[in-house]
């Protein structure tokens, strides 16, 4: 298992640093027409790091490949086999990704407090352990509100109220939380 992991780590690193070197740096690291003095250009350091990363990725692949073959009966376990065997885990991970994406995009729409209440509630559900039901329900509602109060009162952080709650609703929500 470890050997396969090393093989995939090498593969991921090689692909990632190759993308960085040949795609991201040429597009996203602009070299200015004038560089003061003899200072090295801005793409010099990312290129150096990218090359080292790429070489190390290839080295990890080379070092892990023979061991992987040996460890898994002369063939490297295929990605398809892994996916099939770990279907449940991958589904849970995908659901978590969807939750995080929904949270990031939902934050400006429904506001910080409702978004964190929902996030916490769904995370509790996703843990799959309902032994502390009442604590879970209580914490889902109280904990984000307490944090909201702490950070608005102490650091005066302006949390987004949410587009849905803008106007009269936003006023009543912040009034309610402040009142609590």
């Amino acid at each position: 298992m470890n050997q396969n992991r090393d093989f995939y780590a090498g593969l991921v690193a090689t692909v990632f640093f190759a993308i960085v070197l040949f795609v991201l740096i040429p597009i996203y690291v602009k070299v200015p027409s004038f560089i003061p003095g003899f200072a090295p250009p801005p793409d010099m350091w990312p290129r150096v790091v990218g090359v080292i990363g790429l070489v190390m990725g290839i080295l990890a692949l080379v070092l892990a490949f023979p061991k992987s073959r040996k460890a898994s009966g002369e063939q490297v376990t295929s990605l398809g086999f892994y996916v099939n065997r770990n279907k449940v885990f991958i589904t849970r991970f995908a659901l978590l990704l969807v939750l995080f994406v929904a949270f990031v995009y939902g934050l400006p729409v429904i506001g910080f407090v409702p978004a964190t209440v929902l996030l916490l509630g769904i995370l509790f559900l996703m843990t799959g352990n309902f032994g502390n039901k009442f604590w879970m329900i209580g914490l889902t509602i109280i904990f984000p509100v307490l944090l909201y109060l702490l950070f608005t009162e102490v650091t005066h952080t302006p949390f987004p109220e949410g587009m849905l709650f803008s106007g009269s609703l936003s006023g009543s929500l912040s009034d309610l939380v402040t009142l609590i």
Partner: peptide, 19 residues
């Protein structure tokens, strides 16, 4: 318990980081 603690830590981090 970890099932209560870890989700709360995420929310704490979200508030702390945003602030």
């Amino acid at each position: 318990p970890q099932t209560l603690l870890l989700p709360c830590i995420l929310i704490l981090c979200v508030y702390g980081i945003y602030s």
